Simulated assay, not measured.
Amino acid sequence: MLQDFVFVFVAGLITALATGLGAVPFFFIEEFGDRWNVALWGIASGIMVSASLFGLINEGLAYAADGLPTLMVGGLLAGVVLVEVSDRVLDGTDVGGRSEADADTNDADTDESTQSPDAPIDVEAFAEGDPKKLVLILGILTVHSFPEGVAVGVSFAELGFDGGLGIFGLSVPVLAVFMTIAISIHNIPEGTAIAIPMRAMGLSKWRMVGAAVFSSLPQPIGAVIAFAFVRWAEAFLPFGFGFAAGAMIYLVLTEFIPEALETGVDLPRSGYRELSAGIGAGVLLMVPLLFV
C-alpha cells in the first residue's frame, strides 16, 4: 500500500513539475505565442472531457450497485459544487493583502505588462518572498489545484489490478496514464501565465520556473488523499469517479475554454481555430480508452 501511495504521489508531482515547463520557453525566446497556449488549452480540454465521459463515468457506472448510478450522479453534482465554491473563494481572496475591490481600483494604475489574469497566484506577492504571504498563497493554491489532484488520484483507483499497463512493476490503469498526461498538459499554459508577468518584473528565469511549480504543489497531495479515499471506501467508488468527472467537465466548461478564448482574443477568428484543433487532437488521443 505504501508503494501505491508513493506511486500516486509521484504521478501528482509530475503534473506539478509540468507547470514549470510553461516558463522554459523564456530561456530561449523573448515572446511566447498565444497560438501555442490556446492549442494546449484545447488539447487539455479534449483529453479531460473524453477521459471523464469514456473513463471516469464509465467506471462509475460499472461499479454502480444494481445498475442505479445514484452515488455517481451525487458525485458529479458534488464535483461541480466543489469547483464553483472554489471559484467563489478565489474571487473573494487576494493573496497580496488587498480586497478584490481595492485590486480593481489599483489595477488601473498598474503597468499592464505585470498583470496576467490567467495566473492563479499574485505574482507580485510571490516575488516579495514574504513567508506569511507564501503560506497564504499555498493555502489559496490548495483550493485552486485540489480538483485536478482529485482527478489524478481517483483515476488510480484500480492501481495494481489486472489489465493495466506495466510500469515499474505495477499494473497502472490506462485511465490514470491519460489523466496524468491531461493534467500535465493543462498545467503548461498555466505556468506560462505565471511566468509572463514575472518576466516583465525582471525576475530570474529559474525564479519563474520555481513559481510555476509552486503553484501546482498541492496537486500530488490531493491525488494521494483521493486515492486513499477510493481504496479504503470501495463502496463509494462510483461517487469518487463521478466527483472527479463532474469537477473536470465543469472546469473545462467554466475555466479552460474561457481562458483559452481570452488568451486567443487577438488571434485570427479569436483563436477558435486553434482551440477547435486542440480539442479535436485531445479527443483523438483518448480514443484508445474506448477499447480498454
Results as ranks from 00 to 15, higher is better:
residue 68 L to Y: 07
residue 226 A to P: 12
residue 66 D to Y: 05
residue 144 H to V: 00
residue 89 V to M: 11
residue 31 E to P: 02
residue 119 A to V: 06
residue 200 A to C: 09
residue 49 V to S: 08
residue 187 N to M: 04
residue 288 P to E: 10
residue 232 W to G: 05
residue 16 A to S: 15
residue 239 F to E: 03
residue 75 G to L: 08
residue 154 V to C: 04
residue 202 G to E: 09
residue 95 V to I: 02
residue 53 L to Y: 06
residue 172 V to K: 13
residue 125 A to C: 14
residue 242 G to N: 14
residue 19 T to G: 13
residue 81 V to C: 03
residue 204 S to I: 12
residue 265 V to Y: 03
residue 35 R to D: 14
residue 221 I to E: 05
residue 234 E to M: 03
residue 141 L to K: 03
residue 151 A to G: 08
residue 6 V to T: 02
residue 261 L to M: 04
residue 214 F to N: 02
residue 141 L to S: 06
residue 89 V to K: 01
residue 101 A to R: 00
residue 118 D to K: 00
residue 71 L to V: 03
residue 88 R to T: 12
residue 170 L to G: 08
residue 83 V to T: 06
residue 247 A to R: 00
residue 90 L to H: 03
residue 267 L to R: 07
residue 106 N to E: 12
residue 160 G to R: 14
residue 29 I to T: 04
residue 216 S to Q: 14
residue 105 T to C: 09
residue 275 L to F: 00
residue 154 V to Y: 06
residue 145 S to M: 08
residue 188 I to T: 15
residue 39 A to M: 15
residue 169 G to Q: 13
residue 122 D to A: 01
residue 41 W to E: 07
residue 54 F to K: 09
residue 232 W to L: 05
residue 273 R to N: 14
residue 147 P to L: 11
residue 47 I to M: 15
residue 216 S to L: 01
residue 208 M to E: 15
residue 78 A to N: 01
residue 65 A to R: 06
residue 14 I to F: 11
residue 152 V to T: 13
residue 291 F to I: 02
residue 175 L to M: 11
residue 146 F to V: 04
residue 165 L to Q: 11
residue 166 G to K: 12
residue 255 E to H: 07
residue 211 A to G: 09
residue 52 S to G: 14
residue 248 M to L: 13
residue 126 F to L: 08
residue 104 D to Q: 13
residue 225 I to Q: 11
residue 111 D to N: 14
residue 60 G to V: 14
residue 155 S to P: 02
residue 220 P to N: 04
residue 190 E to I: 00
residue 219 Q to S: 08
residue 88 R to A: 04
residue 51 A to H: 10
residue 59 E to I: 01
residue 146 F to D: 00
residue 215 S to A: 05
residue 243 F to L: 07
residue 154 V to H: 02
residue 216 S to A: 12
residue 70 T to M: 12
residue 98 R to K: 11
residue 180 T to S: 13
residue 96 G to H: 04
residue 189 P to A: 08
residue 52 S to C: 05
residue 9 F to R: 12
residue 50 S to C: 06
residue 84 E to H: 02
residue 207 R to P: 00
residue 258 P to V: 13
residue 2 L to H: 09
